[in-house]
């Protein structure tokens, strides 16, 4: 009966990010969400449990007020959650998140056979935490997995990289990061949401950890990517389409090599 841990991150929903004035980003109106691919990680853990039994726990690192994410994660099927939180756990870089997770998972009584992470987070998309966590725990790792078959003491996975698909065998315990195509995450219903609030959350504070978790990467600046073009808006009227074609020809982008 496998124990499965799925990691998730509570992130800014990039769809709410507004371009502020000048080079700034306006983050005042943002909402938060479970990082997209982490939903696939949770879903895969729950599907494996439905097939093989065992238990599924969700684990996250964040600020003490990120509790909305816990409820969201638990409504997707895991039976309990580990919430490693401190007010300093804000804007962590991947090496910190991995080190914190490794200390909690490796140094405690959390029993696991398989750890599933999303391929990368939708905010930073650095795609480091999963592989780093595996390295810190000293367990086998496969990233970019699109299929998992679980056996007694091993998993067979398909990982998709640029030049094709590799079928790999990993002895358990192991860690995989999953691609979005591995499954379609279920949408929690009202009942799931209600039952989520009754599920246990194990709170782990900084005082229970011994590491110092200093960042290796220091962010110097975050500025708006400059993508805006002062474009012309046209209608679907014939004269507008005709003037578009004229303009494209004048700019030398169509009608022969510039």
């Amino acid at each position: 009966m496998p124990g499965i841990l799925c990691c998730f991150k509570w992130v800014v929903d990039e769809a709410y990010i507004r371009a502020g004035t000048g080079k700034e980003l306006d983050l005042d109106w943002v909402d938060y969400k479970i990082s997209d691919y982490d939903r696939n990680a949770i879903e895969e853990a729950v599907r494996l449990q439905e097939k093989h039994g065992g238990n599924v726990s969700a684990i996250t690192v964040g600020k003490p007020d990120d509790t909305k994410g816990l409820k969201d994660a638990l409504s997707r099927g895991p039976e309990k959650a580990y919430f490693i939180n401190d007010s300093s756990f804000d804007n962590l870089e991947p090496s910190q998140t991995a080190a914190i997770l490794a200390e909690v998972i490796g140094g405690s009584s959390i029993d696991y056979d398989l750890i599933i992470c999303g391929e990368g987070s939708s905010d930073l998309y650095a795609r480091q935490v999963g592989p780093r966590l595996a390295a810190k725990l000293g367990i086998p790792c496969a990233a970019f997995v699109q299929k998992i078959e679980m056996e007694q003491d091993k998993i067979i996975v398909e990982r998709k990289i640029e030049d094709g698909v590799e079928v790999l065998e990993l002895p358990l315990p192991a860690l995989v990061t999953v691609l979005p195509d591995i499954n379609s995450p279920r949408i929690p219903g009202l009942k799931d949401t209600l039952s989520a609030s009754k599920k246990p959350v194990i709170d782990i504070g900084l005082d229970e950890l011994s590491g110092s978790f200093d960042p290796c990467l220091r962010t110097i600046s975050i500025s708006k990517a400059n993508m805006e073009r002062n474009g012309v808006k046209l209608s679907s009227e014939p004269q507008d389409i005709s003037s578009l074609v004229d303009a494209l020809i004048k700019q030398g982008v169509i009608g022969g090599v510039k």
Binding site: E93, P94, L124, R127, P131, A135, A143, E162, C216, L217
Partner: peptide, 23 residues
């Protein structure tokens, strides 16, 4: 930054306890 090497880079960085700027 091929997919395979991204995974390798993250694992190497973790064993060296150093930072990694992805992509």
């Amino acid at each position: 930054a091929s997919l395979r090497c991204k995974e390798m880079a993250a694992r190497i960085a973790a064993s060296l306890n150093t930072g990694l700027c992805s992509d």
